[in-house]
Design a protein around this nucleic acid. Structure first.
Length: 265
DNA sequence: ATGACGGAAGTTTTCCGA
């Protein structure tokens, strides 16, 4: 099974990229963030014509998340239970797992707050949001042990995930409280798929549009796929696909991918 | 020190992202 996540920075603009990528990569699940459109504008017909079903939670201008999958997303839930939030940042759904017909995968697609800067109100909201997410996920992992958390975390977990750690030290996306929150997620029994495998140095999933950030590889690894303990042993590969970042009018993020062996284990 | 680039709203300039 191929599971993937991609912050598309406007699904309206990036729909051709998404359709091309689905056709080329044939993922079983693709989580999208930053749709930047209302549900009434979601391009459901085009996505279904490509052979995918979708669950989505959007809003005007900002945020918005979706789960695309070959089989219909089941038991769809929106948001973080117990955390009131007008911003559409989380959607969850169950997807059949060929290895365990009685026990589907629980897919959680999340667009973590950016935080803007460590001295802003948005940063405080980010920390509150992270705390609520972690508390909620502890319960979700009990309900759904076969859980995958995919999305734009807006956190670079370690210095090796940052092109210039000195410049980013203590800045938003890299600050110690954010990294501690990421470690708290790991502490729930989640595992970073990408770091299960040997990777090239300076592997990133986002590059600034400005100053030729991509060509100079001035990036951050902030998009992640975390697998619960019962799933991680089946993960056979994880990668970042930089190809869509090279197209005309790209998103500033690249898709991240994890492959799960379909045998039980 | 600031802005760069890109998207959206919506009218010309602002907010936001990371």
């Amino acid at each position: 099974m191929i599971l993937a996540s991609w912050n598309v920075n406007s699904l309206k603009v990036r729909l051709p990229h998404v359709l091309d990528w689905l056709a080329a990569q044939q993922p079983d699940v693709l989580c999208l963030q930053e749709l930047k459109l209302e549900d009434k504008s979601f391009p459901l017909a085009e996505i279904e014509a490509a052979g995918y079903r979708a669950a989505f939670s959007g809003q005007k201008t900002y945020n918005g998340v979706a789960i695309l999958s070959r089989s219909p997303p089941l038991d769809v839930e929106r948001g973080i239970a117990g955390f009131e939030d007008a911003q559409q940042r989380v959607i969850s759904a169950s997807i059949p797992d060929p290895s365990e017909p009685a026990s589907p995968l629980r897919i959680v697609c999340a667009y973590f707050p950016n935080g803007q800067s460590v001295d802003s109100d948005k940063y405080q909201y980010k920390l509150r949001w992270l705390s609520a997410l972690t508390i909620w996920l502890r319960g979700e992992l009990e309900r759904y042990p076969r859980l995958v958390l995919l999305g734009d975390y807006n956190i670079a977990p370690e210095d090796r995930d940052v092109h210039d750690p000195a410049a980013w030290k203590d800045q938003v996306l890299c600050s110690e409280p954010e990294r501690a929150a990421f470690r708290d997620l790991i502490g729930l029994g989640l595992h970073d798929a990408f770091r299960r495998f040997e990777q090239a140095e300076k592997s990133y999933s986002w590059w600034d549009y400005r100053m030729m950030g991509f060509r100079r590889n001035m990036g951050l690894r902030i998009d992640h796929i975390l697998l619960s303990t019962v799933l991680v042993g089946r993960c056979t590969a994880s990668s970042i696909d930089k190809a869509p970042r090279k197209l005309e009018r790209p998103s500033d993020h690249a898709p991240v991918v994890a492959v799960l062996d379909e045998r039980a284990g």
